[in-house]
């Protein structure tokens, strides 16, 4: 037992170190070509210079947002995979992203953003996400019991319906509006509003704290619902709570950064390979790894074909996917949470 705790602490320290290292690396590279040796001076010199503005107003917000979104999505992935005991579940499977995207599409087409301002995008995305969450939740609840498999199927269906609706909207809207929608769907960590970034961080971190309260429930749930019940877990309460936490984390991420795929699917699996499947460490480790991973991907997206930028989803997909396949071939393990 004692050994385990020490190992966990080492993992957290290691991952925290990696996160910090990647953040610093990300701050140092970019298309503006600021030499690494000058960065320290630029920050010390403070406001006023162009270099400072690039570092603090452009790069730093992206790093912080990458941390929050990457962490939140990975966390949501862990929660859902643990709860559903299904390795293919990710935050976007449940139709939450579809709902958010639909909300934003409607916003663009009806030009709400022209009257309500830039803040209306995340707001409409979030509204869409929350509506879908409630829809799925109420559809899957029968006689006060949340049917887990039903929840998954309803989510997948709602996801299809909303993507069809998005296509419908795109088909009948003007060229310029389509660009706006495509953009948003591609996902980006570029967010001009500091308040939103802070909000994303707060939500991600409080999501981590809340879900940590349920780490034993999650461990029990991964044995199977019935077993968990026998172990004395109030499964209904924890399922409800975990589902809502994961949904809010996803909805919030999607509404701020658009749809950034693969993070929520791959990071939990990846982390599970190394730290094991105990949720006490898995939650924190996934959160840190997800943050680091997304910051790294965004840095690559910014720099690979600089001065142009790639959508960050391209990198998360390619890098994450291939890294994962490689690791899986090296390390023989069972995916998902079906067995303890």
């Amino acid at each position: 037992m004692q050994n385990k705790v020490i190992r966990w602490i080492l993992w957290v320290l290691l991952l925290g170190g990696i996160l910090l290292g990647i953040s610093v690396f990300s701050l140092c590279v970019g298309s503006a070509g600021i030499p690494v040796s000058e960065i320290f001076n630029l920050i010390l010199d403070g406001k006023g210079s162009t270099g400072y503005s690039i570092l603090i107003d452009i790069r730093l917000p992206r790093i912080i947002l990458g941390f929050a979104i990457g962490g939140a999505l990975s966390l949501a992935g862990v929660l859902l995979q643990g709860m559903f005991r299904n390795p293919l579940v990710e935050p976007y499977t449940l139709g939450i992203s579809g709902g958010a995207a639909l909300g934003v599409c409607i916003n663009i087409v009806f030009k709400l953003n022209e009257t309500a301002g830039i803040f209306s995008f995340p707001l409409s995305g979030f509204t869409g996400a929350v509506l879908v969450i409630f829809l799925i939740y109420s559809l899957s609840k029968k006689k006060g019991i949340l049917k887990i498999q039903g929840l998954l199927l309803t989510g997948v269906m709602i996801s299809f319906i909303s993507s069809s609706l998005i296509m419908l909207i795109m088909a009948i809207s003007r060229t310029e509006d389509i660009h706006g929608i495509v953009f948003w769907i591609m996902g980006s960590l570029e967010e001009p509003n500091w308040a939103l970034i802070k909000l994303a961080v707060i939500i991600a971190v409080s999501g981590l704290i809340t879900s940590y309260l349920f780490c034993f429930d999650l461990n029990a749930l991964s044995l199977g619902e019935e077993e968990a019940l026998h172990l004395g877990i109030n499964t209904e309460r924890s399922k409800r709570f975990l589902f809502i936490t994961a949904s809010l984390l996803t909805g919030c991420s999607v509404s701020v950064a658009g749809i950034i795929g693969f993070v929520g699917l791959i990071v939990p699996h990846f982390v599970r390979m190394f730290v094991g499947r105990d949720h006490r460490i898995l939650l924190i480790a996934s959160f840190l790894t997800g943050g680091a991973f997304l910051i790294l991907c965004d840095t690559l997206a910014r720099t690979i074909i600089s001065p142009l930028e790639l959508p960050v989803g391209v990198i998360t997909g390619i890098l994450g996917g291939s890294l994962f396949v490689y690791a899986m071939s090296k390390k023989q393990i069972v995916l998902g949470g079906n067995s303890a």
């Binding site: 970019g30 298309s31 503006a32 070509g33 600021i34 162009t50 270099g51 503005s53 690039i54 107003d57 452009i58 790069r59 660009h179 953009f183 570029e190 910014r302 600089s306 001065p307 142009l308 930028e309």
Partner: peptide
């Protein structure tokens, strides 16, 4: 070059 038609490299623009 600082952008595609739709995506802008802010760093480049500012520098």
């Amino acid at each position: 070059k600082v952008a595609t038609v739709i995506e802008v490299n802010l760093e480049k623009v500012i520098s």
